[in-house]
Amino acid sequence: MSPVPEQPKPTRLRPLWLALGFVLTGLGFLGLILPGFPGTVWFILAAAAFAKGDPKWEAWLLSRPVVGQMISDYRAGRGMPLRAKWIACICIVVAVAFSLGRIPVLAGQVVWVLVGLAGVWFIALRTPTKR
């Protein structure tokens, strides 16, 4: 039997953290079914929001079969499987390439490419590879 998490002290921000957690969880589940839309990052952010809003919802999210393992691996510093890193980097490159033409201003295009490069850099070089 798992221990019951402590209830957080009531704050005015608690409902906002909970709402953010639910929105991020929804985006995460969309990422599980939509190709090219990563879900892991949304679940990690949702767990962080739930941790500040209500630990019961955080525990629920961590108990999900696939999702809970991804969040636990990230929190423990175990990183991502190599295949997932490749898929994430390719998705970023494809998303940036397809959306670049829709940005009418050159400065916006440059910023968008830099954001994409930062994402690839973080995943490829800063995120540990899980063996």
Rank of each mutant, 00 (worst) to 15 (best):
P65G: 11
Q7N: 11
A59V: 03
S72H: 06
R83E: 11
L45C: 00
R83A: 15
R12C: 10
T40L: 07
F50D: 00
A49E: 02
K130R: 15
E58P: 05
V111K: 14
P104H: 06
E58M: 08
D73H: 14
Q69I: 13
L106V: 15
G119D: 01
L117N: 08
S99A: 09
L61R: 04
A19S: 09
P5Y: 09
A49Q: 03
A84H: 09
Q69N: 10
G108M: 12
G119E: 00
Q69T: 10
G68K: 05
P35C: 01
R83C: 06
L32T: 06
W121S: 07
G68S: 04
V93R: 06
V23I: 15
R12T: 11
D73F: 04
R12F: 12
A124S: 11
V41F: 05
F43H: 03
V4Y: 05
R102Y: 05
I44G: 01
K85Q: 12
L100Y: 06
V105K: 10
A95C: 09
I92E: 03
L34G: 05
T127V: 15
A47G: 11
L62I: 02
Q7M: 14
L18I: 15
F37Y: 13
T40P: 01
F98D: 02
W42D: 05
P10R: 12
G108F: 10
P38L: 06
G39S: 04
P81Y: 11
G116T: 04
P65H: 05
G101E: 05
P15R: 02
P38I: 01
R131F: 07
G36C: 08
